[in-house]
Structure formats: structure tokens, C-alpha cells
């Protein structure tokens, strides 16, 4: 059995009188791609923020190898935020150099440039990158210190089909490296392709948990969207619909 990297117990997060996350329990094993699936407002990003150590839970806990999050947790995780601006007028090269300077033993820049195929736009103002180029840069910045766990918050939202496929390839390569990936998405096809384990959230609560195949088989439905519809009356976004 694989080692548990992160374990979540009774996790809750409230903002004033709004409950964003309402009592989650799950474990994430080393080397797996763990997906948090759900529509907008389901609590995916808030849950991810607590797993990243960026937000404090209102109640419950996130444990790293069974212990509280260590003080150097930020050096062990890489985060690709859903919406991140970079400094104006800086190029991908400048940004890689900047973020590399934050760590003691960063991955050589040449290696990152090649791995994330940044060469063609390395010296372009970051504000003029396409969606796919920008996401590849953000992913490279998240990986600059060779982290053990990588968080990806809706990494393909707003991308065209080709850029989406490109990013899937990059994420698959990261999986093949043996990294633990934690991914939020509301695209079921993405979850089916990339994730080993899924938690389906709605209104901050776990609706179902399991492998994509297991969830579909157990429910006797054709796909995750149909499953979600049958559970909540709401529909997830089908990737193909978005593409079309």
C-alpha cells in the first residue's frame, strides 16, 4: 500500500455566515493524481487552499505524513493558482530567474525551459502570452524548486482544445515522474484522463469518492456528468461542450 502524503479530517472553512467547506475527510497517497471535482462554488479552491497551507481551516485538520504541516511546507509544494498575475513587463525568462532565486536548489532553468517548451516565447512580455503559453509558464514556476506535491487549480480553464491537450501531456509527464498531483477541475473528461482518485464535491461536502472508473461503474451511468446530474440535479461542464 502506498504511503499517505496528506490526510484531511473534518475539514471545515467558513467566511462569516457562508460555509465554503463542510466536513471533508480523505487521504492522498504518494505519487497519485488526486482530483477535486465539482461545479463552481462547490468548495474546490477553498479546499485546495487549505491543502496548500495558504488558508487556515475553521475546523478539522490537514496533516502531512501524519503530522501538522511543517514550517518549510512551502518549499515542499508547488502551486499553480487558478488566477495569478505576474509582474508587468517581465518575460518568462525574468520570471523563471526571479522564482528560482527564492529557493536554495532550483531546477536548472534550461531544463525547465525545455520541459515546459518555453523557448519560443522566453523573451516575450508575459502579458502577451497565449492562454496555453501562460499556463505552461505558471506550471514551470510552480515546479521551479522541484516540489514533492504539485497543486493545480483548474489548470485548463479558458484554454483552447490544443492548449488543453498540451497541458494534459505536461501533467501526465509530471505523474510519470512520480510526483503527487492535486488537481481541481470542473471538466469531467480532464478528471477521467488525469486523475487516479476523485472526490466529487457539492456545496462544500463530499458526494462521492473513488477512482473515475469505479464511480461510473458503481452508479451504472455512462459518464461522470450523468452521475453528477443524478446526484444533485446540477450539471458539470462537459469538455466537449466547452470546446464546441
Amino acid at each position: 500500500m502506498s504511503e499517505v502524503v496528506l490526510s484531511v479530517a473534518g475539514l471545515e472553512k467558513s467566511y462569516d455566515d457562508v460555509i465554503a467547506v463542510d466536513g471533508l475527510d480523505f487521504e492522498i497517497e504518494k505519487g497519485e493524481c488526486f482530483g477535486l471535482l465539482g461545479p463552481n462554488g462547490a468548495g474546490k479552491s477553498t479546499t485546495l487552499a487549505m491543502l496548500e497551507g495558504m488558508e487556515e481551516p475553521t475546523a478539522g485538520s490537514v496533516r502531512y505524513y501524519g503530522a501538522p504541516l511543517p514550517s518549510d511546507y512551502q518549499t515542499r509544494v508547488g502551486i499553480q493558482f487558478q488566477a495569478t498575475a505576474l509582474q508587468d513587463f517581465l518575460t518568462p525568462f525574468d520570471n523563471l530567474k526571479l522564482f528560482s532565486s527564492f529557493y536554495d536548489d532550483p531546477i536548472p532553468m534550461d531544463q525547465l525551459i525545455e520541459q515546459f517548451r518555453l523557448k519560443d516565447f522566453l523573451h516575450r512580455d508575459s502579458r502577451r502570452l497565449s492562454g496555453g503559453q501562460r499556463q505552461r509558464l505558471l506550471l514551470a514556476l510552480a515546479l521551479v524548486h522541484n516540489p514533492e506535491i504539485v497543486f493545480l487549480d483548474e489548470p485548463t480553464t479558458g484554454l483552447d482544445p490544443r492548449s488543453r491537450r498540451d497541458l494534459w501531456d505536461v501533467v501526465s509527464d509530471l505523474k510519470a515522474d512520480g510526483r503527487t498531483l492535486i488537481l481541481t477541475t470542473h471538466y469531467m473528461e480532464e478528471a477521467e484522463v488525469l486523475c487516479d482518485e476523485l472526490v466529487i464535491l457539492s456545496h462544500g461536502k463530499t458526494l462521492l469518492q473513488g477512482t473515475p472508473e469505479q464511480l461510473i461503474t458503481d452508479a451504472g451511468v455512462s459518464d461522470l456528468d450523468t452521475l453528477f446530474l443524478s446526484l444533485t440535479g446540477e450539471t458539470l461542464v462537459k469538455t466537449q461542450e466547452v470546446i464546441e
Partner: peptide, 16 residues
């Protein structure tokens, strides 16, 4: 502007 655009949040996720 950095805060509103989320850039500070990105920096928070580093050892800076």
C-alpha cells in the same frame, strides 16, 4: 495592484 491581481498570493506561496 499586485494584491488585487493575485501576484502577492503567488509570492506568499514561496519562501519570500
Amino acid at each position: 495592484r499586485y494584491r488585487q491581481s493575485g501576484y502577492l498570493r503567488r509570492l506568499k506561496a514561496t519562501p519570500l
